[in-house]
Amino acid sequence: MDLLIAQEIELHQYYTRHNRATIERLLHVEFSEVGMSGTRYNLDSIVAMMGEEDRAQQRVHSQSYCCNTLAPGVCLLRYQSALVDEEGEACNFAERCSIWVLTDEQWQLKYHQGTACAPFELV
Results as ranks from 00 to 15, higher is better:
Leu26Asp: 01
Leu26Tyr: 02
Leu26Arg: 01
Leu26Gln: 00
Leu27Val: 06
His28Pro: 04
Val29Gln: 13
Glu30Phe: 01
Glu30Met: 04
Phe31Ala: 04
Ser32Asp: 06
Glu33Phe: 02
Val34Asn: 00
Gly35Ile: 10
Gly35Asn: 13
Met36Tyr: 14
Ser37Cys: 12
Ser37Met: 10
Gly38Trp: 10
Thr39Gly: 09
Thr39Ile: 11
Arg40Glu: 14
Arg40Ile: 14
Tyr41Ile: 10
Tyr41Asn: 05
Tyr41Asp: 10
Asn42Met: 04
Asn42Glu: 12
Asn42Tyr: 06
Asn42Leu: 05
Leu43Pro: 08
Asp44His: 15
Ser45Lys: 14
Ile46Gln: 05
Ile46Leu: 13
Val47Arg: 06
Val47Thr: 12
Ala48Glu: 09
Ala48Trp: 04
Ala48Ile: 02
Met49Leu: 08
Met50Val: 07
Met50Leu: 15
Gly51Trp: 06
Gly51Glu: 03
Glu53Thr: 10
Glu53Gln: 14
Glu53Lys: 10
Glu53Ala: 09
Asp54Thr: 10
Ala56Trp: 05
Gln57Tyr: 07
Gln58Phe: 08
Gln58Thr: 12
Arg59His: 11
Arg59Gln: 13
Arg59Ile: 15
Arg59Thr: 14
Val60Ala: 03
Val60His: 07
Val60Thr: 13
Ser62Gln: 07
Ser62Met: 08
Gln63His: 07
Ser64Thr: 08
Tyr65Ser: 00
Cys66Val: 12
Cys66Gln: 15
Cys67Phe: 00
Cys67Trp: 00
Cys67Val: 14
Asn68Ala: 09
Asn68Ser: 11
Asn68Ile: 11
Asn68Val: 11
Thr69Glu: 15
Leu70Lys: 05
Gly73Asp: 08
Gly73Cys: 05
Val74Ile: 15
Val74Lys: 03
Cys75Ile: 04
Cys75Thr: 02
Leu77Phe: 06
Leu77Ser: 06
Arg78Gln: 15
Tyr79Ala: 04
Gln80Ala: 10
Gln80Gly: 01
Ser81Gly: 11
Ser81Thr: 12
Ala82Arg: 02
Ala82Thr: 01
Ala82Ser: 08
Ala82Trp: 01
Ala82His: 02
Leu83Thr: 09
Leu83His: 10
Leu83Trp: 10
Val84Asn: 01
Val84Phe: 03
Asp85Ala: 08
Asp85Thr: 10
Asp85Glu: 06
Glu86Phe: 01
Glu86Ile: 09
Glu86Trp: 03
Gly88Pro: 08
Gly88Leu: 06
Glu89Ser: 13
Ala90Phe: 08
Ala90Cys: 10
Cys91Val: 03
Asn92Glu: 15
Asn92Ala: 15
Phe93Ala: 07
Glu95Lys: 09
Glu95Pro: 01
Glu95Leu: 13
Glu95Asp: 13
Cys97Lys: 01
Cys97Asp: 10
Cys97Pro: 01
Ser98Cys: 04
Ile99Ala: 00
Ile99Asn: 00
Ile99Val: 14
Trp100Cys: 00
Trp100Ser: 00
Val101Glu: 09
Val101Phe: 02
Leu102Met: 12
Leu102His: 11
Leu102Ala: 05
Leu102Tyr: 02
Thr103Tyr: 04
Asp104Tyr: 09
Asp104Trp: 07
Asp104Asn: 14
Asp104Arg: 09
Asp104Val: 07
Glu105Asp: 15
Trp107Gly: 05
Gln108Tyr: 10
Gln108Leu: 04
Gln108Gly: 03
Gln108Phe: 06
Gln108Arg: 14
Leu109Tyr: 12
Leu109Glu: 07
Tyr111His: 13
Tyr111Asn: 05
Tyr111Arg: 05
His112Cys: 04
His112Leu: 10
Gln113Thr: 04
Thr115His: 03
Thr115Leu: 02
